[in-house]
Design a protein around this nucleic acid. Structure first.
Ligand code: FES
Ligand code: FES
Lengths: 151, 151
DNA sequence: TCGATATAGGACTAAATTAGTACTGTATAA
DNA sequence: TTATACAGTACTAATTTAGTCCTATATCGA
């Protein structure tokens, strides 16, 4: 299925909301109400995003979170990286890892190539791109839409 | 991490071996010995590949498996699809699904665009591409290598 | 300075998914 | 008929993910 974790999805929704309304600091409670994600989960996600440097956190009363960079600077790859670590579609796709099958393997190194191709896609899409309104679409229209996003 | 299941990795290794040595039918035991993947697992994977039509199976003595299509016709997307179902990086990325946050969501439809972009990559890479020998590489070299593979 | 507010960090439990194995049934060749 | 090899399915164990909670720390304002 090649699925992202729910937390990564939550993170993207939360960041998009913050990007849209960046006039003030956002508390975890406010973000929860805006997105319908439960408070403990919002809190968990934002702690991770803060540690990764994607949001800036202020403690105490009048505190809250704000984006640390503009929506054009935050890539989908960086959001995934913050929540799940670097993209690695198989154990074998990072350069440093030695795979079990070692010398016998017919496809050695090729997962790395596929992985890099996917990372390139994910690095080319920013939070700003994720906020453009999408209509109902057919497969072909997605293709067109994507052409517009890619650089 | 955006990870594929191990079974998908196994499937690709097995198909690559079959592609390289397509002179005869391959039994599960032979494939196990060639790849070091345990027999029950080889068997499980091949049953799935057979059902998906990627390999053709012959029962009985002198039986075994062979590729149902040429290595150039089998895409990485089709291998993933056979083992894990269609690629869907989030619950929200398939057109038909209604997401929880519904109307409030700032990024509605955009996971679908990202998903389609990734599918395009995976559909453009074939089993034949996965069999080209890869040297040790730097990030830039991967980029070059990938340019060569893409169409 | 005290108390209210809000995040930081970590631990913990429950749920879901994945991996691996085993068993019974069916087809084929000699 | 017998040995071989795949088909289908069920089951268990292992791993990962999601969700919650508790304690500590920082900040503001009365
Ligand atoms: S899958 Fe790891 S070396 Fe082939
Ligand atoms: S994440 Fe599903 S509608 Fe926004």
């Amino acid at each position: 299925m090649l699925r992202l974790s729910k937390l990564t999805d939550y993170a993207t929704v939360l960041l998009a909301y913050m990007a849209k309304t960046n006039s003030h600091l956002h508390t975890a409670v406010e973000l929860s109400e805006a997105t319908t994600i439960h408070v403990p989960t919002v809190s968990k996600v934002l702690k991770v995003l803060s540690k990764a440097g994607l949001v800036y956190a202020t403690r105490g009363s009048k505190g809250g979170y704000q984006l640390a960079q503009g929506p054009e600077q935050i890539t989908v790859a960086s959001i995934i990286g913050a929540l799940e670590g670097p993209v690695a579609i198989t154990e074998c796709s990072s350069q440093t890892h030695d795979c079990e099958q070692a010398s016998a393997c017919e496809i050695k190194g090729n997962w790395g190539v596929v992985n890099r191709a996917i990372i390139n896609v994910l690095e080319s899409i920013t939070l700003a791109d994720m906020m453009v309104s999408q209509q109902q679409y057919s497969s072909e229209e997605i293709q067109v839409s994507w052409q517009g996003l890619s650089r």
